[in-house]
């Protein structure tokens, strides 16, 4: 299998790994968002959904493990590429004209990715750890209240919204970039893919960010 390893560690192979894992994560976000949006159905609906996930826990765990693997590949490869690409130009330009030839989101994937990664750690601690590892409210299946409580915090919500905007930058470039990497760039379809990526990104950003906004401004419930 040496050929496979060498293929995947070539410059194009690494990009391929980024694209495949990226697409998986893009799909995962859709499911995640659908789950989140059930909050608009009220505490009962959301809590039931999460509770039901508990029933199929072994399957969820497997999916989670796969997700972690995908994340690790995506992040490891991304950092490796970033490091190698830095080395390809040891001395940079004194005057940087890149704003005139490329889109900022495309040039800052490592930045937006890193911030999203930091956010991910905090996010996992706030919710995944609380939901799974013995938060008193979780024991009572009061997941909705955990969320409401977290988002009542201005700082946390603010950070969440900022992270979502950066995720948006990351997704907007990543979406079409994956298709380019797969070689699906064509005069007819590529403009469509770019638009689709933008629509997807907007749905994700607005969808995810709407929840803290809802809890901050419109949720009158007492926690």
């Amino acid at each position: 299998m040496g050929w496979l390893y060498s293929a995947l560690s070539s410059s194009i192979g690494k990009k391929f790994v980024m694209a495949v894992t990226g697409i998986c994560l893009i799909l995962f976000l859709i499911i995640h968002l659908i789950n989140n949006l059930t909050m608009y159905g009220g505490p009962e609906l959301f809590n039931t959904v999460v509770k039901n996930l508990d029933i199929i826990k072994p399957i969820v765990r497997v999916i989670e493990a796969v997700l972690v693997l995908i994340f690790v590949f995506h992040i490891f490869n991304g950092v490796k590429l970033w490091y190698e690409n830095k080395k390809a130009r040891p001395i940079g330009y004194t005057v940087n004209g890149s704003s005139k030839n490329s889109d900022i989101t495309s040039r800052t994937m490592i930045v937006s990715g890193s911030i999203v990664f930091i956010f991910l750690i905090i996010h996992l601690k706030t919710f995944w750890v609380s939901f799974n590892l013995g938060h008193p409210l979780a024991e009572e299946h009061q997941y909705y209240e955990i969320v409401a409580s977290a988002f009542s915090n201005w700082i946390y919500s603010g950070l969440y919204i900022v992270a979502m905007v950066l995720l948006g930058f990351h997704l907007n470039h990543g979406f079409q970039s994956a298709f380019q990497t797969f070689g699906w760039n064509n005069n007819k379809y590529f403009p469509l893919i770019k638009k689709l990526g933008l629509i997807y990104t907007l749905i994700m950003v607005i969808g995810f960010a709407s929840i803290p906004i809802y809890f901050l401004f419109f949720y009158g419930g007492n926690v």
Binding site: S11, N85, K100, S102, D103, S106, T181
Partner: peptide, 12 residues
């Protein structure tokens, strides 16, 4: 040479 990260600066 580095890898492509699809910024399309080359085309521009």
């Amino acid at each position: 040479f580095g890898s492509c990260s699809n910024t399309y600066a080359c085309e521009a």
